[in-house]
Write a protein that binds this DNA or RNA. Sequence first.
DNA 1: CGGAGAGTTGACAAGCGTCAATTTGTGTGG
DNA 2: CCACACAAATTGACGCTTGTCAACTCTCCG
Lengths: 241, 241
Amino acid sequence: MTIKCEKCPLRGLPLFLEFGREELDYMQKFKTGEMQAEPGTHLLSQGERSPQLFTALSGMGLKYKMLRNGSRQVVGFVMPGDFLGLQAGVMGEMGHSVEAVTEMTLCVFNRAAIWELFSAHPERSFAIAHLAAVEEHFLGDALATVGQRPAYEKIAWAMARFFNRAKATGQAVKNTAPLPFRQQDLADGLGLSLVHTNKQLAVLRRDGVLSWQNGTLTVHDPKALERIAGEESEVHRRPLI
Amino acid sequence: MTIKCEKCPLRGLPLFLEFGREELDYMQKFKTGEMQAEPGTHLLSQGERSPQLFTALSGMGLKYKMLRNGSRQVVGFVMPGDFLGLQAGVMGEMGHSVEAVTEMTLCVFNRAAIWELFSAHPERSFAIAHLAAVEEHFLGDALATVGQRPAYEKIAWAMARFFNRAKATGQAVKNTAPLPFRQQDLADGLGLSLVHTNKQLAVLRRDGVLSWQNGTLTVHDPKALERIAGEESEVHRRPLI
DNA sequence: CGGAGAGTTGACAAGCGTCAATTTGTGTGG
DNA sequence: CCACACAAATTGACGCTTGTCAACTCTCCG
């Protein structure tokens, strides 16, 4: 029961760049299937060559690196529309692992086909480069936040990102959005300890900015959040693979 | 007096992937000129659309982002062979600035030509995606280092990177390599204060691991450096644009 | 000779990490 | 239905890594 790309629920969202009819047909061929992943499923593994690439259709996940000393750096939070496995696709080896946090639905592509895509469809290969650039842009922002800002602002930044992205993918309801991660995941993404993350979240709650309970983020004061986060609410449009 | 790509001094280095005759001819067309930049020259600016893309041929530079609070995050150290402006080329806007630190020689490409490159030469467009993935990989490592490791190891990590890259580009002489940056630049790249960076450098010196004076890095104990940095000395091969 | 930039060092403060105990929620088995 | 185990969130106490402030040195350059 795989969804046809034509009926892809993501395609119409303003977050994503347009998709021509011809490209649509091509992507349909490129797609080899669909996959359902349970929470905790390892989709891609750091240091390994994966035969499969994915696009997240629904659900959320985590990208992370394990360090020699046992600590973990979360390098990204997977949300619908994200393309997974680019590094394996072009470099042959993933720099990080990807794991499902909720149940996920994924488009599956064949790694071998990516080369064919480059030779056959320049517009699509440009889209892949575009996505890589978007990722580089994000990681630069993340590095700047982790490297230069205090914990209170780091958390606000991450929350603003979550909320804006959720709005862009239609997951937000009024001022709330699903956020199924653990505080530990956020802490590992921001270079903070779990305890300190928890305490700063409490401050944001006390300040009436936001609350995050039972997997749901609620933004009580969007203006304040934007100001603390230093983050514009506009999300850059990106291609969908 | 622009150098012909055929005689590019970088092309033969083992760091870079092979370059076919046909590709060589194509790149020669793609290249619109050469540029000499003095120390301090701004090559690309955060938030701006640049009409030109570069490949660094010689010299070194800095990639950085400025934050609202006035602090600066260095997101990369430019060394020979690096391709600059990918974000402007495919996203239309740079996420960071690039500035020359020493005198630099750069290959200059036309931004408009990049689209033509994608349609005309799949192998080269794949190389661009490859470079983007290499950059993503690096930023992931940097984020993990900045987020999870103590200052002593951060500095060792950065120094190991510098030294390995210098060896790969033939800039290293025995156990020394040119390193023309300021301590402030390193500090801004690792999320540390200048003072603390200086003190930890002194510890590395006292421990007999390395010294860094007058723009020259000397590695006295490569084994120890590799162990502290947690960094393999092998550098991934990459395309040259 | 004076000033600016870079590096160095010490004293002190603070943001954040670690340890530990408690609470809450959820699922499992008796 | 309760007892129990387990994961996650929460809170307080304490300490250490790191930041800030400040003074001094050295070099380069006008």
